[in-house]
Amino acid sequence: MGYRFTAAAFNQLLESLREKYRVYAPTLLKGKGKFSDTDLVGYAEISKIEDVVFNQKSYFSPKETFYPVTQRLFYFNENGFSEAVVDEKGMIVFLRACDIQAVERLDKIMLENGLSADYYYERLRNKLKLIVMDCQESFDSCFCVSMGTNKTENYSASVRLENGVYLSDVQEDIEGLFAFHGETIEVSPKFVESNKQSVKVPENLVLESVAANPIWEEYGSRCIACGRCTVVCPSCSCYTMQDIFYDDNPKCGERRRVWASCQIDGFTDMAGGHSFRRNNGERMRFKVMHKIKDFKQRFGVHMCVGCGRCDNACPEYISLAHCIDRLGKEEAGNRG
Rank of each mutant, 00 (worst) to 15 (best):
D107A: 05
E83P: 05
E64D: 06
L128K: 01
V86F: 06
C144Y: 06
T152L: 08
G90A: 03
G148W: 00
D107G: 04
V85C: 00
K127F: 08
F60W: 09
S146N: 13
R96W: 02
R72P: 08
V132W: 05
M133H: 02
E112L: 10
Q56D: 09
I92M: 05
L73S: 10
S61I: 06
N126D: 15
Y120N: 15
D140W: 00
T152M: 06
V132T: 13
S82L: 02
N113E: 13
F81A: 14
T149C: 13
Y59W: 05
S82G: 00
F76N: 12
C142G: 12
Y67R: 04
L128Q: 01
T152N: 10
P68W: 04
D134S: 15
K89V: 05
Y119R: 05
G80V: 07
R123F: 00
V86A: 12
T149H: 07
Q56I: 00
A102K: 00
L111D: 09
A117E: 12
E83D: 13
N55L: 04
C144S: 13
E83G: 08
S58G: 08
D107W: 00
L128V: 14
K89A: 08
L128E: 04
S116T: 06
V103T: 10
G148P: 11
F94L: 12
R123G: 08
K63T: 08
I100E: 13
Q101E: 08
M110Y: 01
V93K: 01
D134T: 10
Q71P: 06
N150W: 00
V103G: 10
L95C: 14
L124S: 02
Y121P: 12
N150S: 15
Y120T: 13
F66W: 15
T65N: 11
Y59T: 04
F94I: 07
R125P: 12
Y121T: 08
Y75C: 00
M133L: 14
L128N: 03
S61F: 02
M91I: 09
L115G: 10
S116H: 09
F76T: 07
E122G: 02
V86D: 14
P62Q: 06
G148T: 06
N126K: 15
M133I: 15
E137S: 09
F143E: 15
Y119M: 07
M91N: 03
M133K: 07
L115V: 13
E78N: 08
E137Y: 07
K89L: 11
S146H: 05
Q136S: 09
S82Y: 04
L111I: 07
L106M: 12
T70C: 13
N55S: 12
S58Y: 02
V69Y: 14
F94K: 03
V145C: 12
Y119N: 03
N79L: 07
K57Y: 03
K127G: 10
I92R: 02
I109R: 09
V103P: 06
M110H: 01
C98G: 04
S141N: 14
F76K: 05
Y120A: 14
F94V: 10
F81H: 13
D87C: 03
L124G: 01
G114E: 03
D118K: 01
D140Q: 05
I109M: 14
Y121S: 10
K151M: 13
K127T: 06
L73G: 15
T152V: 13
R105Y: 00
S61P: 09
